[in-house]
Design a protein around this nucleic acid. Structure first.
Length: 206
DNA sequence: CGTGAGATCGCCT
DNA sequence: GGCGATCTCACGT
């Protein structure tokens, strides 16, 4: 179950987001704060491409204040606020200007379980980081952290030396153009508990 | 376990 | 002014 993990440099992330996304499955992202460390093993991600290529992407219509981080260096954090209350986290992919990213949709807490429970009162252990907004809360990463370099403290990111076996399907929550079978850019590790349950809008036939 | 609706606000047209 | 890369609770099965 537990494979070897290694730290990698920025160039490792500077590839196409659809290629990068499944390679991040099984990676462990840690975040340190005054409260302590929480680390999450990623079990579900989604790839988003750049300007003009991906109708489901925040970058589709070009650079704006919100998505500016997507246009910068790889391995930085792109955090965005949605539905009036939720923060979701992405890892920027590709080279500067490619405006692509990988959304962290779910995972399991592998370190700092007690702290994660405090941050998500009432949630079962399985649900602590299952879903993109839940994952952000469990890690303790706020919206204001957008733009942070994930390759420097207070973060630590390690990836598997051997890629995890994965499955793929339509992206969750992306409706209209950009959703559905034309963009099967959601990737997950089959059988892992940290795979998000929200597929209602996606019309997947898994 | 599944479905459904409300919350709540920044972003973009 | 409309809607979103969502989550939680309520209620029926």
């Amino acid at each position: 179950m537990s494979e070897a993990l290694v730290a990698v440099g920025r160039e490792w992330f500077a590839r196409d987001s659809v290629e990068l996304a499944p390679l991040l499955l099984g990676a462990v992202l840690a975040h340190d704060s005054e409260e302590g460390r929480v680390a999450i093993r990623l079990s579900e991600v989604e790839a988003y491409r750049g300007v003009g290529e991906d109708p489901g992407s925040h970058a589709f219509r070009g650079q704006t204040r919100r998505n500016a981080v997507m246009f910068g260096e790889s391995a930085h954090l792109y955090a965005y606020f949605t539905y009036g209350m939720h923060t979701c986290l992405n890892v920027v992919a590709g080279h500067p200007g490619s405006s692509s990213a990988v959304l962290l949709r779910g995972g399991t807490v592998v370190e700092g379980l007690e702290l994660a429970r405090l941050r998500r009162p009432g949630a079962s252990d399985r649900d602590l980081a299952r879903g993109p907004a839940r994952l952000a809360v469990a890690l303790g990463v706020p919206l204001s952290a957008s733009g942070d370099d994930l390759l420097a403290p207070p973060y630590a990111l390690e990836v598997p030396t051997a890629p995890e076996p994965f499955e793929s399907g339509p992206r969750t929550g992306v409706s209209g153009a950009g959703g559905g079978a034309a963009f099967p850019w959601r990737f997950w590790i089959p059988g892992e508990p940290g795979v998000s349950p929200y597929r209602r809008h996606a019309r997947s036939d898994d």
